[in-house]
Design a protein around this nucleic acid. Structure first.
Lengths: 148, 148
DNA sequence: TATTGTTATACTCTATAACTATA
DNA sequence: TATAGTTATAGAGTATAACAATA
């Protein structure tokens, strides 16, 4: 691999991450459908689990989505009983989104689905390669500059 | 990591691939905009480069998209001068999509953009980790069962 | 009749802008 | 006036269905 033989598009990390990310996302989306969840629902539930009760506008900023979308997602999750809206008493404009036990359970099931998918996606890798992939992806996602 | 401490959602390969894939895709999309290209355009150009002239319906099947979308993308690329439509003489219903020199050049520029992005995305990895990531992603994308 | 490409239409996701209520 | 949430509307991307030309 020298200057006269540059890496072709399909061999770049960018291209491959995009391809595999789309594949993983599509399969995950399909399977969480059985729980009546969509990807943004899972993102919101995950945020509440890690951050605790959070105002809607804060959620919008943390997930990098429009405030109006948070309304839609929270509505859906409220119908499922996965979150509750709690009116903030000191500032009654604000609503804290709170994860319920049902929401916790759904999140647990989503994690199980993702772990199943991991097995399928990385079936072609030997244990060392799989571990190296995990480590690299972990470094990149735990690092700086990442939305949602 | 044992049975009582399962991998949480955000630590799964599925979740991380989805997150990084979306990030890489968004940045790539933004930058190819200066070439007046969209992601599907690049996918079509890339297919023509690797497979040579291809009928539209075949393109649709290979990319895993609806035939009507191939019409839209091919229209856009024809306006840019990146592909030509050649009517098949032995079966005049068919049109072969052919990559032009302009299309080749655009593809070359897309590859350069992707390589730049690779540098930025993997800046947090040491050389060994970067190489391990490349190898793993290469194995997974070169393997079986992948659309587009 | 079946197939290729096209057009017409509709659906999903998400954003922007206008609005309500509280501050 | 400014802010939190909501509602109304619009745009991008893509699919499905109806259609035209050719086989």
């Amino acid at each position: 691999m020298n200057a006269a033989d540059p890496v072709p598009l399909t061999a770049t990390t960018t291209y491959r991450l995009g391809l595999l990310g789309a594949l993983a996302g599509a399969r995950f989306t399909e399977r969480i459908g059985s729980l009546r969840l969509k990807p943004k629902d899972v993102a919101l539930l995950g945020l509440l689990q890690s951050d605790g009760p959070t105002a809607q506008l804060t959620v919008a900023r943390r997930l990098g989505v429009a405030p109006s979308l948070v309304v839609t997602v929270a509505d859906r999750l409220e119908v499922l009983g996965a979150v509750r809206r709690l009116r903030d008493q000191s500032d009654r404009r604000r609503q804290q989104l709170v994860l319920t036990d049902t929401g916790q359970e759904l999140l647990t099931r989503c994690a199980a689905i993702a772990r199943e998918l991991d097995e399928e996606l990385t079936a072609g890798l030997d244990p060392a390669a799989r571990q190296a992939l995990d480590a690299a992806l972990g470094t990149l996602t735990t690092g700086p500059g990442l939305p949602s």
